[in-house]
Write a protein that binds this DNA or RNA. Structure first.
Lengths: 369, 369
DNA sequence: TTGTATGCGTTATCAA
DNA sequence: TTGATAACGCATACAA
């Protein structure tokens, strides 16, 4: 399986399969100085085109790979970027990190990933770790237990640019990439309205987190736009778990005029609502339309599939890298903190789609109990 | 919010809040050589205890952070580890990576993560990237499209240790950390047997992948041990998707003597089987018990919750790091390739648990349609 | 256009 | 036990 066609040529063509080739090696072979090599490889202006070609050719022949550490040591700027996320398991951060890695790689950077595990103490340790690795910049999504931000000062002191994403120090002058959660809540609610829903309930999340506040705001905005009065009894505050959301839904259904739709600020919450509704014999979406938030993996696995809001996670990662590289470029002296806001996308699925009932009545509904 | 109790002391106690403190700075302050500083900090044997204390104290006062790049450049060994995974989204690799990161951090290493996106071309690029970042070692889980392994030779040439995990070059002399998939298949099948299942079917995965071959083997082993003849009609080969698995299940249920249990080699496959069974009016687990593999997140969200096999992903990550650090320690000259095999764990959930029926007949079954 | 010299921060070698 | 020196690989100010 392994000894096929590539073995015999091993010693015939190139034998420089050894330890790393340095600029000095190339210089010696060409009888020039390392300065010339350096200039040719970094496309310096004061280099002869002929010489440049010679160097490049030789570099390719020997498969020269620049030593990032040496370069970084000399320049004071490495080709490493640091990321701190609360955790990597779960869809959201995994996808954001993927976006980060893609964008960073394209720009010739490597990415060091740290997880705070939602613990500010780890966050501090991660920062130290990244600093001693001499990263050129840092991207952070705050741990849930971070209420004090002095550990980030050290970055500024050392001139290492910092960009937050998703979870951000609020009201401060920081660089950040965010999702427009209000827009997401607005889109989901408006969709339910266009499906003909008359009484739309909202399962809201903890209001000390801006994302949930904004999703609630979007819900209100959509209702107002449609001229529907907001009924406070239709808004329930939960911790976004499946269990609490099911409970809240039970309470909603016990109202004298129960809702005919639920917009949940999270997918697990939407799932809890859906399970409770079906448990009570209601048909989703006919009797009760449902929309969630986050596009978790299970939303396409559930029955029926769940309408949700996608956060364009990868795009967030890429935008974060773009902003960070910009700051690295300018030297981070020009302190004009910027906030980018990304638009979410509504994904309409079966849990909210009533239109089908009109075109082809009870087509799929008949197949299910 | 930010200007509280830490501001006034800023200039009183320590003002070294500046650019990175180097050994030279400490040396100057103490009137000794950098050599002495280096020795004190690295706990060299030829250092006076008094001097050592003085240095350590000063280092703490100035919050000295070693420059990993300089150290790496000098020693030829960095504090960076490289990881290449097919992708990071999805539960398995995310958890393995978490385990890797935890173990690496504990040992004072940072981790650079690369994703091949199941493309061998990316895998090659990732390797180059890691090499130029001067990583001290590399951990790889092969891309699905990797059938040729010469790009890994370069690591050996440069003396950079390599450890595979989960997806491995087979039959070769490599260091690897694996899961005992046979054991997993065995445990799941045996569990179904103890639940009283008489005819257990198996939804098998692509047999060119060792993991699926081994799970199938475990299935056979359990049956043989129980004295049940293996019925070839009960083994169906699918691509492990929900759709194909549902189809295969339909075929199984159409047999003259249909199965009363299904062990699927993957959770999505198990889900497809479960959905098909219920669609045909069967009750899970009473009429048809089901077990999957991988402990995907949705297995606890599905109704009923799905019995599955957990792969101890984090442990795999930690074991991989441990093995790698060992190789880095010995210099990777001692070429005694080792294969570690981890034991999986069976997680029994509702989709296979028939015991409840005997103790409290149709307790929960009544609540559901 | 090319070369010389120097230093980034750390550590190994040798000498004191 | 401590210090002086050189070197890791690269990039820049300066000289030629």
């Amino acid at each position: 399986m392994s000894s096929s066609k590539k073995q015999p040529t091993d010693s015939s063509k190139d034998k420089p399969n050894q330890s790393p080739v340095s600029m000095a090696d190339l210089a010696r072979e060409l009888g020039v100085s390392t300065t010339t090599i350096s200039r040719a490889l970094s496309d310096h202006f004061s280099i002869g085109p002929a010489m440049k070609q010679k160097v490049l050719k030789l570099a390719k022949k020997y498969n020269y790979q620049p030593n990032h550490m040496a370069s970084a040591l000399r320049k004071g700027k490495s080709k490493l970027l640091g990321v701190i996320v609360p955790y990597i398991e779960g869809r959201f951060f995994a996808k954001v990190v993927h976006g980060i890695e893609t964008a960073a790689t394209k720009a010739g950077y490597n990415v060091i990933i740290c997880q705070s595990n939602e613990d500010v103490a780890n966050e501090r340790r991660n920062l130290e770790s990244l600093l001693s690795a001499q990263v050129a910049g840092v991207m952070v999504s705050l741990s849930r237990t971070t209420h004090e931000f002095h550990h980030f000062d050290k970055l500024r002191d050392r001139g290492v640019p910092l960009v937050f994403f998703d979870r951000v120090i609020e009201g401060n002058n920081v660089n950040a990439v965010l999702l427009d959660d209000r827009e997401g809540g607005y889109l989901a609610t408006r969709h339910l309205l266009t499906q003909g829903c008359q009484r739309i309930a909202h399962l809201a999340g903890p209001q000390h987190l801006n994302i949930y506040r904004n999703r609630l705001q979007g819900y209100f905005d959509a209702l107002r736009e449609a001229g529907q009065p907001a009924d406070e009894r239709l808004v329930r505050y939960t911790d976004m778990t499946q269990a609490q959301s099911a409970e809240a839904t039970r309470a909603l259904l016990a109202l004298e005029s129960p809702p005919d739709a639920v917009f949940a600020a999270g997918d697990y919450s939407a799932l809890g609502a859906m399970q409770e509704a079906r448990r009570q014999g209601l048909c989703v979406p006919t009797d009760m339309a449902i929309a969630g938030f986050s596009n978790e993996a299970f939303t396409v696995v559930a029955e029926p599939t769940i309408t949700t809001v996608d956060q364009h996670c990868e795009e967030m990662g890429q935008a974060t890298v773009r902003l960070l590289l910009e700051l690295i470029g300018v030297g981070s002296n020009a302190f004009i903190p910027r906030q980018l806001s990304l638009r979410p996308e509504l994904l309409v699925r079966d849990s909210s789609l009533r239109e089908v009932d009109e075109t082809q009545p009870l087509a799929t509904a008949a197949a299910q109990p």
